[in-house]
C-alpha cells in the first residue's frame, strides 16, 4: 500500500519554479532513495511534503490529502523530517533536543526506552547529554538530528542527506541504523542522498530527479545494475 503519494507536484520559490510536476509513490514499510545532481529539487521535494514550501498538485499521506496543511499538523500525522542543515537547536542541550523530538508523546515509559535505544545507536551521546548542541561536531549534529526524529516515533521518516559530513565508516553505521529503524520499528523511510552507491544498497526503490522532475525510477537493485543509468545520472 502507498503510504505517501505525490502527483504532479509543482513548487516554486517566488517566481522561480523548483519542481515541475513530480510524481512518486512511497510504499509502506519500504526505504525509498531520491537521487540527483545538485539543484535537481531533492530538498524541495521533501520541503513540499512537510509544507515548508508552497505547492500545487496532490500530496497524500496514508490516504489523506496533506498539500497546503501547516507544517506542524503534517508532523503530527507522523512524518518526521530531518531537514537539510540538520535543524539543530543549538542553544538547547543534547538531551533537550532529544526531548523535543518526543515532546508530543504521552508515553513517558516508552520515551525513556527510546532514549536508551538512541544511546545504543550512538553511544557517545550518553556522556554529552548536558552539553549545548552547538558544541557538537557537524557529524555529531547529523546523528543528533536523526536521533531526534526517531524520538517522534514517526510512520514516515524523511532524511535529507544523512551522510553529509560524516566519515565513511560512520556513514556505513548510519545506513545500518536506518535499515534497523526500517526493519525493526517498521518506519517507512525516504532519503535524499548524494552518495548513490550506498543509498541504492539500502533502498528498495529509487527516484532520480533532474531539473525538478523525475528522470528515472525503479527498483534500487535494478537501477544499481543498469550501467547507462549509473553513468548518466549517478556518476559511478
Amino acid at each position: 500500500m502507498a503510504l505517501l503519494e505525490l502527483q504532479d507536484v509543482v513548487a516554486s520559490y517566488g517566481s522561480r519554479r523548483a519542481l515541475h510536476g513530480v510524481s512518486l509513490i512511497v510504499e509502506e514499510g519500504s526505504i525509498v532513495a531520491m537521487l540527483g545532481a545538485n539543484g535537481a529539487g531533492k530538498t524541495t521535494t521533501l520541503r513540499a511534503i512537510t509544507g515548508l514550501v508552497k505547492v500545487q498538485g496532490a500530496i497524500r499521506f496514508d490516504g489523506r490529502s496533506i498539500a497546503g496543511r501547516p507544517t506542524e499538523e503534517i508532523a503530527r500525522l507522523g512524518i518526521a523530517h530531518v531537514p537539510e542543515g540538520r535543524g539543530t537547536m543549538s542553544q538547547l542541550s543534547v538531551l533537550e533536543n532529544l526531548q523535543m523530538g518526543a515532546c508530543l508523546r504521552r508515553d513517558p515509559k516508552a520515551v525513556r526506552q527510546d532514549i536508551d535505544r538512541v544511546y545504543g545507536y550512538f553511544p557517545w551521546m550518553k556522556s554529552r547529554l548536558e552539553q549545548p548542541a552547538a558544541l557538537l561536531s557537524g557529524g555529531e549534529q547529523q546523528m543528533l538530528a536523526i536521533a531526534r526524529a526517531m524520538m517522534m516515533r514517526p510512520r514516515l521518516l524523511l532524511l535529507d542527506e544523512p551522510s553529509l559530513g560524516l566519515a565513511p565508516i560512520v556513514v556505513r553505521g548510519i545506513f545500518k541504523i536506518i535499515e534497523t529503524i526500517n526493519s525493526e520499528q517498521g518506519v517507512t523511510i525516504m532519503l535524499v542522498e548524494q552518495n548513490a552507491r550506498i543509498a541504492l544498497k539500502s533502498a528498495d526503490s529509487a527516484y532520480v530527479l533532474e531539473v525538478g522532475a523525475v528522470a528515472v525510477s525503479g527498483l534500487a537493485r535494478e537501477l544499481a545494475r543498469d550501467e547507462s543509468v549509473r553513468k548518466s545520472y549517478l556518476g559511478y
Binding site: T71, E72, A80, P83, G87, T88, L92, Q99, M100, C103
Partner: peptide, 24 residues
C-alpha cells in the same frame, strides 16, 4: 517542564519546532 522547553524551542527555532509538531 516540557511546556517550558517547547516554548523556549519555539521562540529560538520556530521551523525546527514545527517539524517536530509543535504549534508554535
Amino acid at each position: 517542564t516540557k511546556l517550558g522547553l517547547m516554548m523556549r524551542a519555539s521562540a529560538l527555532y520556530p521551523q525546527s519546532s514545527r517539524l517536530l509538531g509543535v504549534r508554535v
